[in-house]
Design a protein around this nucleic acid. Sequence first.
DNA 1: CTGAAAGCGCTTACAG
DNA 2: CTGAAAGCGCTTACAG
Lengths: 373, 373
Amino acid sequence: MPTPPSAKTPAKAKETGREASSGPAKGKRVGIREIASKAEVSVATVSMVLNNNPKITASTRQKVNRVVKELGYRPNRIAQSLSSKYTNIIAVLMPTLRHTMADPYFGELISGICDKAARLGHKVMLEHAKPDFVREKRHVDLFDRRYIDGVMCIGFSDKHTFLRDFADGGHLAMMVNNVATDMDLDYVVCDYASGAEQVMTYLSQLGHRKIGMIHGAPDVWTMRQMMEAFRARLVQDSGGVADGVMVDGRFTEEHGYAAACRLLDKHPDTTAIFAGNDKMALGALHCAAERGLRVPGDVSIVGSDNIQYAAFVNPALTTVNTPLYDAGMLACERLVERIRGRKEPVAEVLPTHLVLRQSTGIVRQNGVAEPAE
Amino acid sequence: MPTPPSAKTPAKAKETGREASSGPAKGKRVGIREIASKAEVSVATVSMVLNNNPKITASTRQKVNRVVKELGYRPNRIAQSLSSKYTNIIAVLMPTLRHTMADPYFGELISGICDKAARLGHKVMLEHAKPDFVREKRHVDLFDRRYIDGVMCIGFSDKHTFLRDFADGGHLAMMVNNVATDMDLDYVVCDYASGAEQVMTYLSQLGHRKIGMIHGAPDVWTMRQMMEAFRARLVQDSGGVADGVMVDGRFTEEHGYAAACRLLDKHPDTTAIFAGNDKMALGALHCAAERGLRVPGDVSIVGSDNIQYAAFVNPALTTVNTPLYDAGMLACERLVERIRGRKEPVAEVLPTHLVLRQSTGIVRQNGVAEPAE
DNA sequence: CTGAAAGCGCTTACAG
DNA sequence: CTGAAAGCGCTTACAG
């Protein structure tokens, strides 16, 4: 247990009189029966009023609501869940990357999910798919033990075959900004293929012919979309006009940095780098800076996702805007629809667009990279 | 509803035969009574085995556990919660900043909380304290409606007086990386005062005398700690040797950028800038770059928190490492202790240390800033 | 050490 | 349109 290293330690909180762990509040919580008796109706009627059952007269409704307000009655959600079919909780399930929550990519998705869920009266529960979590089938437990009504899956790839268990068990799951190949799961995804095409068109217009790509794991469906678009464009532009190489940057700054270094070592004639996400693009930017390469003077760099930081690096990053927050919102909305009875599977694609900033420019004249200044 | 703008639209998921919304799985879920009858004991015994009640014989325990395993029995958590005093869920409550979840600061805290909670068998629920949320006292509802056993509060300031409601209602709340002045709440916080002192000592050693600070809202306790340390050091070093000014950067890159510009406009002789968090430091870095000021040649810049990006900007940022992830872990651990009966209030301070990188250097010789090159 | 019973606080058919 | 009763699936005193 760490001790205050500084003299400016906050004053010790006083021992409080309140019974810290002696359960739900002081006094007897008011329950549905008190409301019923005070309103002179049955508990069934109170319940129906609370649930906006249309069978109830406006007058009884008023009468009950008045008492509810008077006594400050708040129905016990646990009891409601036990009696009804729903918990009104959805889970957000994600892989255990290093401090996942601190990632702006996941953050945007989750922000969208949370905001929409709150509006729809649902709570959201956070869950990490650690190895033992999966091994012990605790992802299924989320449903079997009645924690949740549905689950949103973010950050997974085709390798995460345990996701099948959801469909197999008849449980409601939604892929957010990804598609699970052959798993028959609902999804809402941004149009990464189009984003990559826009990047390639733009770079081509700027005169770039020697283009490198820093990609992430290709078992991620969206990444595959980008890689295929990259390759397809190279083929299409070929006849010798375009050339490209691909290196793995594993979605992180660190590996994006290393990938960029490798790329520039092997192909010093590279004039543009397309990174599969902004973090790898930042890594590439770092590599360029370290080598004294001017961006975009010597090499143009493009990212993808348009995370918050993309606008605040030097030079500001040209990138593909993928509406992550909106994807989170829509996915949540659709999942709740499913929970409420929607039968048709969900398969939505959100448009993407290029955001031009300072990290891209027309191709340099001489074909060989040389230090700036 | 957006339509696929690209040709590469994923194949439509097939309409599935499964009953999407017809409730918990197929077939009758196995309950505690089935286990009881198959194991030839009472349900009470099964329950006690499940809860590791020491009163149960090893042999009955075995017998029951075998059946539990055989039938793959998973106790219904809702029913458990209704009967017992606990939900085994804690909430993480935070203000509604722009896409809060995408913020690395909050992300680190939440990552720590989640990881520890999972290890302790607790689920975590995410909650945003929007204006109407607070107005309708829904933060109290979290307890009154039995959603949660305790709440972790992150990102709040002294202005958020609604936090008093927790202590007033006898509910378990924990401030994470902050202290609620006069609110009598448990807390776990990093030692920001010491961090700021280390920064000032270091800058002083480098010869800096004209130091500016970009701070955030002073009603945030931790920020006040830093500001006081900054001021105290200036006074201590005075007799004309040190001078400083403070501008508000509101915790964001944008305002940090603006604040740095204002600072450098008014005080062009500033040789070092201490920003209250890394985001504002990045804004300052951006401002310097835009003006052609070399960092650290013309001006040194220091941040605080050591978020992931701090190492990947140009130049890499010197900053104070505040162990946010650890703070989240410890806060979670302590909150669960409280839930389980701990009586003493929690008041922990975690040590911080300076991380030296490229954005700081010895003071420039001439006292006036001039464009680089 | 184990069992029978009451109860947690709601909702939902089923009567009236 | 409303009420009395059963039930959701557990845990917890209370007897034995």
